[in-house]
């Protein structure tokens, strides 16, 4: 009796184990959840990429001198998510500024061909990103694929000539590692995390 049930029990255990593994212990069912979990467990080193900001200046992606960098991937003519996300980003900026924390905010365009500095400046104006603490910037076209891959951002063209993309706030800690992802409206959580490492 027992011997006959053994293969079934084994199959059930293995099956359960496989599914447990495949969902990171029943925690991540979507690729978005999976990437967030993975980044926290194993922060990823960010390369020293230079971006061009809305004034045409070069800005580094990597944190400088102990600061924390918050990155959002956007395209400036986005009709929905990027506009809403920018409003939350502005709130984060204001509250960080009030607390005097060393944090830099970057809205990085994943459409560098269309998002020229002029175009980015329009987006920056609209959301009160003045280029001081928060700026809008674009990478070189050739750096883009690696960046998207590193941050696990998937961009697909939509029906109206725009894009759909997973929107989130990506945190690069002062050691130069991409180490957390938050929803664009998770203002409190981002503040707590970004402020946590600093006085």
């Amino acid at each position: 009796m027992l011997v006959r049930a053994l293969p079934s029990v084994l199959a059930a255990v293995i099956g359960g184990g496989v599914l447990w593994q495949a969902t990171d212990g029943a925690q991540a069912f979507t690729s978005e959840a999976a990437r967030r979990l993975d980044v926290v467990r194993a922060p990823r080193a960010v390369p020293a990429v230079q971006l061009e900001d809305m004034a045409g200046r070069q800005v580094p992606l990597l944190p400088q001198a102990g600061e924390v960098v918050l990155v959002e991937f956007i395209y400036t003519v986005c009709g929905d998510i990027c506009q809403i996300a920018a409003a939350d980003f502005a709130e984060i900026r204001d509250r960080l500024q009030a607390r005097g924390l060393r944090v830099r905010l970057l809205s990085v365009s994943f459409d560098p061909v269309r998002d020229t500095p002029e175009q980015m400046a329009i987006y920056g104006d609209a959301h009160d990103a003045d280029g001081a603490m928060w700026t809008v910037a674009r990478p070189l076209q050739q750096d883009l694929p690696d960046l998207l891959e590193l941050f696990d951002v998937t961009v697909i063209p939509d029906e109206w000539g725009g894009y759909q993309h997973n929107a989130a706030i990506h945190v690069i800690t002062s050691d130069g590692r991409f180490s957390a992802v938050y929803d664009t409206d998770a203002v409190e959580a981002v503040l707590a995390y970004a402020g946590g490492g600093q006085p």
Binding site: S8, L10, A11, I14, G15, G16, V18, L19
Partner: peptide
């Protein structure tokens, strides 16, 4: 067992 494998 095979059914369980398939379900997994």
């Amino acid at each position: 067992p095979l059914l369980l494998a398939a379900l997994t």
